[in-house]
Design a protein around this nucleic acid. Structure first.
Length: 114
DNA sequence: TTGCTGACCGACG
DNA sequence: CCGTCGGCCAGCA
């Protein structure tokens, strides 16, 4: 089979969507995974973010949180407080690693991107 | 090469 | 309500 059957690899697709996240908005790993059609591969989305530091281009990984709006991956940044600071810098309130009004800031690629 | 782990999610009991 | 399990894919020992 052609490894290039699809346009881009799974990781590349994740990076593409992550870059499309608008300022002051957040999304979840599962939402991205669902948009890619993988659904259950939500873990790979997080793994892709882990490799995002290796990729060229700005990947707003701080705008990607888990389904609960919890900053689960904050420890993977330069510091455990970097993610929260970045979100607050964009007008998103974060208390105890939990995004306030998460639903209001939530950005679903499936609904936003057609 | 095989096996385990991982920034998750949903279902089941 | 809470604990547990399976699924998905890629990287690493």
């Amino acid at each position: 089979m052609n490894p290039q059957a699809d346009n881009l690899s799974f990781f590349q697709q994740v990076y593409a969507v992550a870059r499309l996240i608008p300022y002051g908005r957040v999304t979840s790993y599962g939402a991205i995974a669902r948009y890619l059609g993988t659904g259950g591969s939500a873990r790979m989305v997080g793994w892709a973010m882990n490799s995002s530091h290796s990729t060229t281009g700005d990947i707003p990984a701080h705008r990607v949180v888990n389904r609960n709006g919890l900053l689960t991956g904050k420890h993977h940044f330069d510091g455990p407080l970097v993610m929260q600071e970045l979100l607050e810098s964009e007008g998103i309130k974060v208390i105890d690693d939990q995004i306030i009004n998460f639903n209001k800031h939530f950005w679903d690629p499936v609904k936003e991107i057609l």
